[in-house]
Design a protein around this nucleic acid. Structure first.
Length: 246
DNA sequence: TCATTAAATTTCT
DNA sequence: AGAAATTTAATGA
């Protein structure tokens, strides 16, 4: 898939006007406490681009120290193991942040970030963020909020991976994804992220075939509905199932 | 229970 | 048609 280069896009994909950019910046959760004038100043120095679906936003070869702010879209964070296997660490949605492995930010330098769909992304240098935090402590608190959430998710994942069956891990993953990206649809919640069985396997430490088999098993008992790159989950049912098979 | 291997089949572009 | 995604089946740890 085409490699996306930051921040070389000049003409294509940039926010159309400064006004647009201002509006988008104000919608970034991190910045909701900032006043208009500060936002305007930020808009001048913060590049913002639309990233085409499937392209890589950062890879380990990129210089670290850049914090990316995801305004709109889905981003998948993953690592590649020595034997060439991808491990998906997280799928992020609107308002989340990634990159930067120093004082702020979460994750390690050997991480890849790939746009799952067309994304709108801002990039800020780490030193700019820390400057901003010193001046506006509320920005720091927002950032802590975002990062804390991520830590909680990862803790849950570790726990799940270490003692649950594949079926349990899949249900837990789907519950988690549906609370982030779910769209209510009758008694089911559609997960609004195009995921292959391979993707799911890489998130729960299993294999494509096992995921296929488990999903169709869950499909048969009505706990999920599956289609090509489409999954809907019956949340209540899965929660109940996870609760009593402990 | 689940990874692995192999192969067939379906669905997308 | 060709590629990608999904499914099925057999085997062994």
């Amino acid at each position: 898939m085409a490699r996306f280069r930051w921040p070389r896009y000049k003409t294509k994909g940039v926010a159309r006007t400064e006004g647009d950019k201002l509006w988008y910046l104000s919608k970034i959760n991190l910045f909701v406490d900032l006043d208009k004038a500060t936002l305007r100043r930020l808009a001048k120095v913060v590049p913002m681009v639309t990233v085409p679906r499937g392209s890589t936003i950062t890879s380990p070869s990129d210089p670290s120290g850049v914090l990316y702010l995801l305004k709109r879209g889905r981003v998948r964070l993953f690592k590649i193991t020595p034997d060439g296997h991808e491990i998906t660490m997280a799928v992020l949605g609107d308002g989340n942040v990634f990159g930067a492995t120093g004082a702020v930010g979460l994750g390690s330098p050997d991480m890849y970030a790939q746009a799952v769909d067309s994304c709108l992304v801002c990039a800020m240098r780490e030193e700019d963020i820390s400057g901003l935090i010193q001046k506006y402590p509320k920005v720091g608190l927002r950032l802590i909020g975002v990062l804390s959430q991520r830590v909680r998710e990862l803790e849950g994942l570790v726990e799940s991976l270490s003692h649950e069956s594949v079926k349990g891990r899949i249900m837990r993953l789907l519950l988690h994804l549906s609370s982030d990206f779910g769209v209510a649809d009758g008694e089911y919640t559609r997960i609004d992220v195009p995921l292959t069985h391979e993707d799911i396997a890489s998130m729960i430490g299993s294999t494509r075939e096992t995921v296929t088999a488990t999903l169709s098993e869950l499909n048969n008992v009505g706990l999920v509905q599956t289609g090509r790159r489409k999954i809907a989950i019956q949340r209540a049912g899965c929660e109940a199932q996870l609760a009593d098979t402990q």
